Amino acid sequence: MLVRADHSNHNESHCVTRAGLAEAVQTRLGLSTTKSIAFVEQVLREIVDTIAAGEDVKLRAFGSFHVRAKKERPGRNPKTGVAAKVTARRVVTFKASRVLHARVNRAAKLAESGRK
Rank of each mutant, 00 (worst) to 15 (best):
R76P: 10
V3I: 12
V57G: 07
A84R: 11
A107Y: 13
E55I: 11
T33F: 09
E112N: 13
K58F: 03
T50Y: 04
H14Q: 09
N9P: 02
A108S: 06
A53E: 10
T34N: 03
T34K: 03
A111W: 13
S13F: 06
E23V: 04
V43H: 01
A88L: 01
R68N: 04
R76W: 08
H66F: 11
E72N: 00
E12M: 08
E72C: 04
R76Y: 15
V67K: 06
T50E: 07
R68I: 11
A84W: 14
I51Q: 06
I47N: 14
G20C: 03
E112T: 15
L2M: 15
V57K: 01
F39Y: 14
A88I: 00
A61E: 04
A53S: 14
K71D: 00
C15D: 14
K116M: 14
A107I: 11
V67P: 06
S36G: 03
A107D: 10
A88F: 00
R73V: 00
V82Y: 09
D49K: 01
H7R: 15
C15L: 10
G54L: 05
G63I: 04
L29V: 15
M1V: 13
V67I: 04
S8N: 03
T33D: 05
K95M: 01
L2I: 09
K79E: 05
F94Q: 00
L100H: 09
N11F: 07
N9Q: 07
H66D: 11
A52N: 05
T33A: 08
I47V: 11
V104L: 15
A53D: 12
R28D: 02
K116T: 15
I47S: 02
G114M: 04
T87D: 07
S8T: 08
E72A: 07
V86D: 00
E46L: 01
R68A: 08
R98I: 02
R60K: 11
L110M: 08
N11T: 15
A69I: 04
K79H: 15
T33N: 10
V82L: 09
D49Y: 01
R4Y: 10
V92S: 10
E112S: 15
K58V: 12
D6H: 09
N77L: 02
A102F: 04
T80H: 06
R76N: 03
D6M: 13
T93G: 13
K109I: 13
